[in-house]
Design a protein around this nucleic acid. Structure first.
Lengths: 251, 251
DNA sequence: TCGAATTTGTGCGTATGTATC
DNA sequence: GGATACATACGCACAAATTCG
């Protein structure tokens, strides 16, 4: 007979109370000591049950304050397809506009940063070659929803008006448009999404729970000559964003 | 002063021994009791350190046997792009051929399965409408690397030669080709990749560690009329496969 | 073939740290 | 600053799986 372990039983009790609207979104649960006494079990069993529900996004723990029923917030839809590139304006802002949200970002650019080994490999240049590195923090209605670190070979844009991705007359229109301005035609992008857990720093920047699930996308843009022109590491929290790829089928 | 907790210190010790090739891939580590005594710490601290490294894919625990240094196996590259659809043959087999591996799969089809609510929503049909459900297990060189559950509206293919995805003259060539055989042109696919942890059942089917990270892709194929013709839930383990999207940029 | 020893995995308790009110 | 509540670290007992004589 497969008897359920106590902590799973308690998890079901908590889940059911939420389903029955005994506790609703945003409510603070009684303290662990109270729940433990009420259910006649150890305090640690309650903790395990709550940890489980927190990892599933049902609850939310706030240190020093209490355990709360998670608010079911609307997830931001991030579309990744060829149609996303607009002749003007940024892809991200287009995503946000489609949702009726205001898209913003903050960025910090540094020139002549030596390429680390992995980045050099992705850009097809030698390790240590100078790059332009830009760190982005994307905001939807003021809340951070996406992080990105972009790398471009310095040699590619040195001396042109588009050296700085977020400066000059072509600021904030995306890689494809910027490269077009200096005569480089971007023909395709390769994206490699990988599931992992957020680092402590990412969790703090994104305002999500520690070790929450994120999708880490390694994206590289290629020119029509097949040369990499930009590569980026993009971090998207699963709880707040859904990622959509649209793939045309050619026959 | 940020003093490191003991279990993190031990984790670093273990990591370093692997880096220094004291232990190499496939080696069995000494038992927890031995390591604990050697380092002069509690047995449980070793356990915590090992759990951390297991979750990072550095170690591998085998119940009743021991803790081993994980083998750095070559990951299978799964390409998802428009160019993947071939006039004949399956997309999966093409992926495997590109890697010099043998691609196979096992499948189990069931007709007239009532559509659950979520599937019905994705296919644009009413809940409970009959569907053809096919469960796949994809193998690379005999090892499971991908799970998939596919749903098609029964009405779409009823009475034709392609009712059964893996039966009849058009078996094993993929959705696009099968639909073409009955005059339905598939124009595009939408894929929604989501990071999560493997369920116990998935972990057992894929031969991966419990709660290992996977990418769960919800894929839907649409006809040129904009009608959904098939939707699938695809589970790809992160440790074994890398997913690559190729996106053309049109201007 | 079977059972005992070994080893990992799980459940649960306690002590302490730390954030919040 | 004190009280409260969650977060973390660690220990012990036992279950489950494996190995081996």
């Amino acid at each position: 007979m497969p008897e359920q372990p106590p902590y799973l039983r308690i998890a079901d009790v908590l889940r059911q109370r939420i389903a029955e609207h005994v506790w609703t979104a945003g409510d603070r649960l009684p303290s662990r000591a109270q729940i433990a006494e009420e259910c006649g079990i150890g305090e640690n069993v309650v903790r395990r049950a709550q940890e489980l529900l927190i990892s599933q996004g049902v609850l939310e723990g706030r240190a020093g304050s209490g355990t709360y029923v998670a608010e079911p917030r609307q997830r931001v839809r991030v579309v990744r397809s060829s149609a996303r590139e607009q002749p003007d304006g940024s892809p991200f802002r287009a995503d946000m506009r489609a949702l009726g949200k205001q898209g913003n970002w903050e960025s910090r650019t540094e020139a002549k940063v030596p390429a680390p080994a992995e980045i050099a490999g992705r850009l097809g240049i030698a390790e240590g070659e100078p790059c332009v590195r830009t760190v982005y923090e994307f905001l939807a209605d003021g809340r951070p929803v996406q992080l990105s670190t972009s790398w471009e070979p310095y040699e590619l844009t040195a001396g042109t008006l588009v050296v700085l991705p977020e400066g000059g007359p072509h600021a904030g229109v995306g890689v494809v448009n910027r490269m077009a301005a200096i005569g480089i035609a971007v023909s395709h992008a390769v994206e490699q999404p990988e599931p992992r857990q957020a680092t402590a720093e990412e969790a703090s920047l994104l305002g999500i729970q520690k070790a929450a699930l994120v999708t880490h996308i390694r994206r590289t843009y290629y020119s029509d000559q097949g040369q990499p022109v930009e590569t980026a590491d993009i971090v998207i929290p699963a709880a707040q964003c859904e990622i959509v790829y649209e793939i045309p089928v050619n026959r």
